[in-house]
Design a protein around this nucleic acid. Structure first.
Length: 171
DNA sequence: TGCACGATCTCG
DNA sequence: GAGATCGTGCAT
């Protein structure tokens, strides 16, 4: 079952938590589908969040984060890994949720590789996409909260925000 | 027009 | 512990 299309209009922290246990459905070029349960996420919230790419303002790369929730934000990191994010919140307020883990797969770089994410997914609308959609999955009430990973440059305040969510099942 | 660096992973 | 590998943002 498809989720409410207003789901991604909530703030990034809420969406990151609620995304645990949801299902990412990937439709491949040959028409077959694969389903992945979301197990780990991170929230990036607003220009004031120094760990958020939008903290440097609107650029061609971050532009999509300023769109209303429900769009896909992807970017290349370390020249080899495509990171999958979902834009959240309202128009003109940059927020996104990074998918760090699905099923048994841990590590956001591996998530992008498993789902065959690339530049062409940038800006995709989840409510219209033929390749990617989110469906209601199982309720996750047992999860861990932790600081985000790999953002030492963001300074004490932002670096320590407990905006990483890890589902406790299947660990 | 050039350069340093990253929301990472894999292999020694 | 280092290398792979390249788009982005900022300095020239």
């Amino acid at each position: 079952m498809k989720i409410n299309e207003d789901f991604f209009k909530q703030d990034a922290i809420t969406v990151a938590r609620e995304l645990l246990g949801k299902v990412i459905v990937r439709t491949w070029d040959d028409g077959t589908e694969s389903q992945y349960l979301v197990t780990e996420t991170e929230a990036y919230y607003g220009e004031e969040d120094l760990a958020c790419h939008a903290s440097k303002g609107r650029t061609p790369r971050t532009e999509i984060m300023y769109a209303v929730g429900g769009h896909v934000y992807v970017y290349l990191i370390y020249g080899m890994y495509w990171m999958l994010n979902f834009v959240t919140g309202s128009k003109d307020h940059p927020e996104a949720v990074l998918i760090r883990g699905i099923n048994h797969i841990k590590g956001s770089g591996k998530v992008g590789r498993e789902l065959k994410i690339d530049k062409s997914f940038y800006g995709e609308n989840l409510n219209l996409s033929a390749r990617l959609r989110i469906e209601a999955g199982i309720a996750v009430t047992d999860f861990e909260v932790a600081p985000r990973v790999g953002i030492d440059y963001a300074g004490e305040i932002w670096k320590n925000k407990p905006w990483r969510f890890i589902a406790k099942f299947l660990q």
